[in-house]
Design a protein around this nucleic acid. Structure first.
Lengths: 219, 219
DNA sequence: GTATTTGTGGATACAGCGTACGGTAGCGTC
DNA sequence: GACGCTACCGTACGCTGTATCCACAAATAC
């Protein structure tokens, strides 16, 4: 079977989906492909480039959502596609924001985002656009990371409250019982019921609202 | 010289500051402390716990900003302290949002943030607070990561335009010259002049504005 | 004072990692 | 037939986190 960058990236993604980024090694990818580890270096400069490749494959999927009718719908679609991609490929969130995304599909997503935002009210010039893109991307990166991290811990601890109490509880409940973190305690105890997607949606709206507000004093 | 968790964490932080998280190893920390690598395991369960330790030391510094007069000043102070800390300890941004922050000082920062936000207009109940904290933290995490990543690439490529063109240019300019990314191209070419701190400030205001808006239809 | 237990620091070892390097087999060209 | 070139391959190096064993010193028991 003939190797190729695409095939290598595809199996790397499959392995990373299954065992996380830490569990991913060139040796395992090579073994999965039935070749020696060094064969991969004929197609890829080093592991970091392979990661870039994997990332851009994911961006390709995000870029598929294409253009919607209005700027807001487009932004919403891209944001949700990014979130969906990160939930399918949790390792993606580990890399989000941590390296420049310069692959062709990543650039396509960036272009679509920027083009949409440039049509938003409150985005008057290039500086506004620069900042709007920054704010939106920052939120998406942070929100997705947060959600994936949360999902991982609840998966490792178990979903029900009893298991949670048993694993993180001893330390965390002791901490919260000190009374030094009353607000956090209330959030932890009472706040678990919120739907993740709804929260993402709501906060995305929050950020977009902030962007589209015309402020008189801009700083 | 007597070892301690604090001393280990301190030297680990120093090494990580100097050589990044990838360049950090238990062996190097031990050598720096003049002991065998296995000694560290008397104070720390594994490398991951050491990382948690390091993270909480940084949060201690962030927590120092304490309470300001109004909720907004408090939030601004915490956000800026987080940014400052990440710029001083770039590895901190690699970890931001990627693992639960449950150390005492991290909880203190979370408490201060949540307490401040609970006094913000537009935050009416616990659900609002939960979402506001999420939105704010997401933005901070994303913005800080973005800034550190950007700083790293400009450092590795060189700051002036010529060096940039030489290192990333061949690929990136070729990409941008395809004409498929016109908006991104304009941003890259024209947008480098913005001050980072100002941008952070501006976007932070944007997010806070979004939070404090009272929306009639909340979803 | 001697014997025995206990704890503390060190050295060694293992499995796995990314990747540098040297060798070999096939093949087109003189 | 000889040669250089290219595509493949296995081996090897230095590094990682960490488990395990071992020596020695201090403390306790008789």
């Amino acid at each position: 079977m003939q190797l190729s960058r695409d095939k290598i990236a595809a199996t790397a993604i499959r392995l990373a989906d299954a065992h996380g980024l830490d569990g991913l090694s060139l040796r395992k990818i090579a073994k999965e492909l039935g070749v020696g580890p060094m064969r991969l270096y004929d197609y890829v400069i080093n592991k970091s480039e392979l990661l870039d490749l994997m990332v851009d494959v994911v961006y390709a999927r995000i870029a598929e959502v294409g253009q919607r009718s209005g700027w807001r719908d487009t932004v919403l679609a891209i944001a949700h596609a990014t979130r969906d991609a990160a939930l399918d490929h949790e390792w993606f969130s580990d890399v989000l924001g941590g390296r420049p995304h310069l692959g062709p599909h990543a650039l396509a997503v960036g272009e679509a985002t920027a083009a949409a935002l440039s049509a938003a009210p409150g985005v008057r010039d290039l500086d506004d656009l620069q900042r709007a893109v920054g704010a939106l991307n920052a939120f998406i990166v942070g929100a997705v990371r947060r959600e994936v991290t949360e999902r991982r811990t609840t998966r490792s601890t178990g979903t029900d409250e009893a298991a949670f109490q048993a694993s993180l509880g001893p330390y965390l409940t002791r901490m919260l019982n000190t009374g030094r973190y009353p607000t956090v305690a209330r959030l932890v105890i009472d706040g678990a019921h919120l739907n993740a997607e709804e929260t993402f949606n709501h906060n995305l709206t929050t950020v977009l609202d902030g962007i589209t507000i015309r402020r008189d004093v801009t700083r």
